Simulated scan of single mutants.
Amino acid sequence: MRACFVGDSFTAGVGDATTLGWVGRCAAAAWGRGVAVTAYNLGIRRDTSADIRRRAEAEVLARLVGTPGDAQAVVFCLGLNDTTFEDGMPRVPTEQTLDNAAALLDWSAARWPTLLLGPPPALHDAVQDARVAALSPLLEALTERFAVPFLPLHAALSHSSAWRGGAARGDGVHPDAAGYATVAALVEAWEPWLELTGG
């Protein structure tokens, strides 16, 4: 199975000294179930949904086209960087975030099994975190249009001592290995992911 994981620093696993992040842990767990996953981590630090929309097609096609014998999937995780304020305004307004997400899901779900993870909390900034909390259900409602499964991360991670503690020990934003292990556990308990990876 070939799977592309497209997102920002939280997809890339920034802050994890093991370099596994949640993507590496989920791929390893799938191998443990007998599914040989080639996990393409396409997370780029500071990327917004607009950045991801610009690059996703070329990056995903380069990895999934021409492999007809393999199962394939695309997993997106986006939104937190959109809510960051720069020069007194969000980097990406909510309406544009939803438009970007819709374009990505429409394109991807027409070709491969596609999943969307909601943005994690912004623990370093309570005001931004409120914007993230408001965005998550809007993204979830959007996924229903495309029959794409959605995993909300914000609420679960907001109450996770491993995530909060890991961020506090690091740069205040990104967790450590224990925090990413918490995300991996949420994904591993998620039926749509298990259906793709032999759970």
Rank of each mutant, 00 (worst) to 15 (best):
A110H: 08
A110Y: 02
T114R: 03
T114Y: 03
L115Y: 11
L115F: 11
L117N: 06
L117P: 12
G118L: 06
P121H: 10
H124Q: 15
D125C: 12
D125Y: 04
A126H: 14
A126K: 12
V127P: 01
Q128D: 08
D129W: 02
D129G: 08
R131E: 12
V132R: 01
A133I: 08
A134F: 01
L135H: 06
P137I: 02
L138T: 04
L139I: 00
E140R: 14
E140L: 05
T143V: 03
T143P: 12
E144Q: 14
A147T: 13
V148E: 01
P149F: 02
L153W: 08
L153N: 01
L153A: 01
H154I: 00
A156K: 07
H159S: 14
W163T: 04
W163M: 07
R164S: 15
G166S: 07
A167V: 13
D171Q: 13
D171W: 10
D171P: 14
D171C: 13
V173K: 05
V173Q: 09
V173C: 15
P175T: 09
P175C: 11
P175K: 02
D176T: 10
A177W: 10
A177I: 05
G179M: 06
G179H: 00
A181V: 04
V183G: 10
A184F: 05
A185E: 15
A185C: 05
L186M: 15
L186Q: 13
